[in-house]
Design a protein around this nucleic acid. Sequence first.
DNA 1: CTGCAATCTTGATCTCGATCAACGACGCGG
DNA 2: CCGCGTCGTTGATCGAGATCAAGATTGCAG
Lengths: 255, 255
Amino acid sequence: MVLMSQPPDLSQGLERCSTCPIRHRAVCSYSSPAELTRLDDVKFYRDFEAGQEIVGEGEPTPFVGSVVSGVVALHKTLEDGRRQMVGLLFASDFIGRPMRNTAPFDAIAVSPVRMCLFHRREFETIMTDSRSLERRLLEMTLDELEAAREWMLLLGRKTARERLASFLMILVRRQAMLDKGSMANGSLITLPLTREAIAEYLGLTIETVSRQFTRMRKNGTIDLPDRRTIRILDLAELSGIAGEIVEDFNTRGTA
Amino acid sequence: MVLMSQPPDLSQGLERCSTCPIRHRAVCSYSSPAELTRLDDVKFYRDFEAGQEIVGEGEPTPFVGSVVSGVVALHKTLEDGRRQMVGLLFASDFIGRPMRNTAPFDAIAVSPVRMCLFHRREFETIMTDSRSLERRLLEMTLDELEAAREWMLLLGRKTARERLASFLMILVRRQAMLDKGSMANGSLITLPLTREAIAEYLGLTIETVSRQFTRMRKNGTIDLPDRRTIRILDLAELSGIAGEIVEDFNTRGTA
DNA sequence: CTGCAATCTTGATCTCGATCAACGACGCGG
DNA sequence: CCGCGTCGTTGATCGAGATCAAGATTGCAG
């Protein structure tokens, strides 16, 4: 990781795991109170500004850890600069591979990010002593693999329109999950990414992304109150474009 | 899995884990002799012909297990029939997710395949009792995730020519690994896939794959002695097209 | 050997998204 | 308030790969 030499971070050690906002979703969510104390003792927080590099492709990664808040994008880059996003991480997602010391991708903070970090060796030691960390990490890795495969279908076979619709559906579903609300027409979605980052996510150019947004707006599928906000006007349509069959929507407007 | 009702398989129980050809690479490779005995007692073999469906997308999967021999392709399909390969499994690779009972993809035998299978519940029970199975499965899943991300870069950003070169480099590297030989000009590679399956792997059409093969043959990068065999004539060139920087080749011909 | 089906190759044309090029909108520092 | 840089939109054109359409090659059943 690149920014470990930044100015000392006063937030370090100020929070306890037991009151952590990601306590019940992160890699430590299966950990007993005793194990949590052990993690508590060696964890440390680090903050990153939007745009900062957290890990550089090919660089050694002496740390692993969880996203506490903010959004992190993982990218791979070809020599001539073509770039593809290969991971998009939110609060509670885990970065870094135990037993591997160079990163196969860049990790960039796309918003202000707080990470809860461990020295890789220390994390590995605790994981070796502990059933629950390893079990949870396996589960999270299997989920990521499943998401990666869905993403491969998108990149290999979907049209630009379908790609954008699929991306918006992921955001809608995520929002509904967090709000514990149902998905509904009228709901407002905050885009966590710039047009450029969306293009890198979808394997498109920024111009194509912009044109597809405009097209959906003109069709009445969505509205764009401002550049970072989407209002879903026709969820059934959006989900249809995305190539999903979703049986049950709450179609009452909520806005 | 779909074909569990096929005629009784005489091979069942005839092999012991201790002499298994994938003993040292599969999910059981970290298992102690005692644990191996336990797996031995509940495992069973099943054979599939080329083209047979092993698992159907969306179907319940009461089994998990390892590929003992042959090649298995995982696909995802859109409603209108567009298909993308999302996994390509060889001997020792593992299929099936513990703690999940429907498959998010089809698994098709692309050659005659022998699977070493476990009832999912039984496998989960043994994994819960055993450190080594879980550790190995985590490691294999992390490897698959890394491969999936490399594949996403290919699908999102590489040209048809680069995609085919990348695919051939994967085969060359795999071959070198198995032969414990170095990669060299002149080596012969047997394609495990038809043109159609290669196209599904690469997110292209069969015609484009064929044209790129022809182009590489005319450029002198490869030769095509028959439709399922490739002779690598210029490995450095191939690897360059694939967008990789490989420093050290054994460039002495071996054929 | 012959006929037929599956697989692969090659050619002609079309199309979606990339590229090149302006222009507009927003936000921030002075 | 203005000037400028970043981000996003829109338009015109281009091109890689898809699609449509024949053939060629291989392999197998009879």
